[in-house]
Design a protein around this nucleic acid. Structure first.
Lengths: 290, 290
DNA sequence: GGGTGGCTGTGAGATTTACTCACATCAATC
DNA sequence: GATTGATGTGAGTAAATCTCACAGCCACCC
């Protein structure tokens, strides 16, 4: 319960706004509540003091002498508080720099970022693409999203998003033409791979027990790789979250599903990162869980 | 929901207290909550701004630069609010003057007044005895409790307490000696009456259909009347609430029960009475109803 | 190294506060 | 008398706040 030295601050605020506007309806608009809420708060305040603070009339409110004196104190008090909050808001907005895997960004994070923006107005998330190992020493970003195939730097907090699952994907038409019956049959498909993940086919082969041939067509970015696969140029090894939408849309098929890659997607921040970095990591952890 | 321009005031207050004390545990003591509540409120504040406001250590809290700045604004703001509240509390305590029927006061109100005092600390109820018609023009009291046998002044608010029921009461021994079988037998009892209610016997006679004789012994105050009746000196016409305790204690008996007198006990206040008058009337109305 | 004390953090659930909705009442205006 | 715009309130819901009961951490002491 509130300390005995104060009535509810909500009631004080409602009262101050009502007096300042001269009407409960206007105060309600300012505070984002119904006039009934203002009426109750003011009534509660008057009851708790045993003193009438305003008279009501159809043309609005008139404070009593006591009410005027109280409202003046409250106005000054709330203005001071408002000044502090505004100062903080000006500071605290700004930008959060997030270093992120390119394709993950495009296909998983960006579609969800609107919810973060809604929850944190005034805070801009600035994304940069990288799959280099985390290096907070240069201060270029506050949070890094990575797959845990690199040693993570000491003195960081790691938020696990989800375990990676990966598997071969290709266009439906190509899959039909190749009459694939088992994962081993993929050896007949043209092999596509990304320079960012050169060992993907070998890793998958080791996990699935399938022989995989070498060579095939290399692409600079994973995004191009998936476009090529969707165009029927061959099969690619892709992490599940990157292709979930394409699978749902029927642009790609994953005839043999996905296997755990042994890796995890993580969000990493320095232990002493700004609070907004923690807010972001908490948020993205919840998004990944949900 | 709170206005978008402010985070929860409760959180701001918790934060300010924590910084001022340098410890959440001390802030919790001041605000009358557990340290867990303070911890959550501060965390909520930091999350909503995306900014760390303090660092925690086993030796206590250290505000960040941002936190210091915010806390200074908040301290000034809350001090201003506190000054207004203190001013009001000083004003609003004081005294409520209640003019009340003497015996009603003694026998019904005073035993209950402790509950009012508990609910309204700092507010003294000053009772004065009177059964004269209400006259708020002299400003001698804020509330008058009366029986509605007088015209009530215009421009007042009336809270009905309960309808009066009255009837004859006398000592058990006298009742036994007189071998009363019906109300009419009361004509054999010595007739006691109060100067404040000279027409009581006649009123009761009219309502009960019994002949009542005139004369008998007059007392200045109703209290004396009841003492005389309890001493076996005769029968008196009493309102039920005045003698409830004596009946329960066996000091008096009401062999023929009580009849509605056509009157009501009411609490009356001016329409523009101080808020504490309304608080009192609301309270006494609830006590009468319960 | 282990024990103690005092600090903060948090899951889960309970309690309290605050609010909405849908009306009612009142007074001013036309 | 009807309309408009103000405040008041019963009943129920939603949200906020809090408690309880622990856990974890660090400094200090032995």
């Amino acid at each position: 319960m509130p300390p005995v030295s104060f009535p509810p601050l909500t009631a004080l605020r409602a009262f101050e706004a009502a007096i300042r506007h001269g009407r409960m309806t206007r105060a309600a608009e300012e505070l984002g509540v119904t006039h009934g809420a203002i009426s109750r708060q003011v009534r509660l305040l008057e009851d708790s003091f045993g003193t009438q603070l305003m008279t009501r009339s159809p043309s609005g409110l008139v404070p009593t002498e006591t009410g005027v004196a109280l409202a003046q104190h409250l106005s000054r008090g709330f203005r001071e508080i408002e000044a502090g909050v505004a100062m903080l808001r000006a500071d605290a907005g700004g930008v959060l720099d997030v270093s992120c895997l390119g394709t993950f960004t495009l296909r998983w994070l960006i579609p969800r970022l609107g919810r973060f923006a809604t929850a944190h107005p005034g805070l801009e998330v600035r994304l940069s693409q990288s799959d280099a190992p985390c290096d907070f020493s240069r201060g270029r970003y506050d949070v890094a999203i990575r797959v845990t195939d690199h040693d993570l730097p000491a003195g960081t907090h790691v938020t696990t998003l989800f375990a990676e699952r990966f598997g071969p994907v290709l266009a439906p038409a190509l899959a039909a033409r190749l009459a694939l019956r088992s994962p081993a049959d993929l050896i007949r498909a043209p092999r596509l791979w990304a320079r960012t993940r050169p060992g993907a086919w070998a890793d998958w082969g080791a996990r699935s027990g399938c022989a995989v041939h070498e060579g095939g067509t290399a692409y600079e970015h994973f995004y191009f790789l998936l476009e090529a696969a969707a165009a029927g140029l061959g099969a690619a090894i892709a992490p599940e979250p990157h292709v979930a939408d394409d699978l749902a849309a029927g642009r790609l098929v994953a005839p043999f599903g996905f296997l755990p890659s042994g890796l995890s997607y993580v969000a990493v921040r320095r232990l002493d990162a700004p609070r907004k970095a923690r807010a972001f990591c908490d948020w993205i952890g919840r998004e990944a869980a949900g």
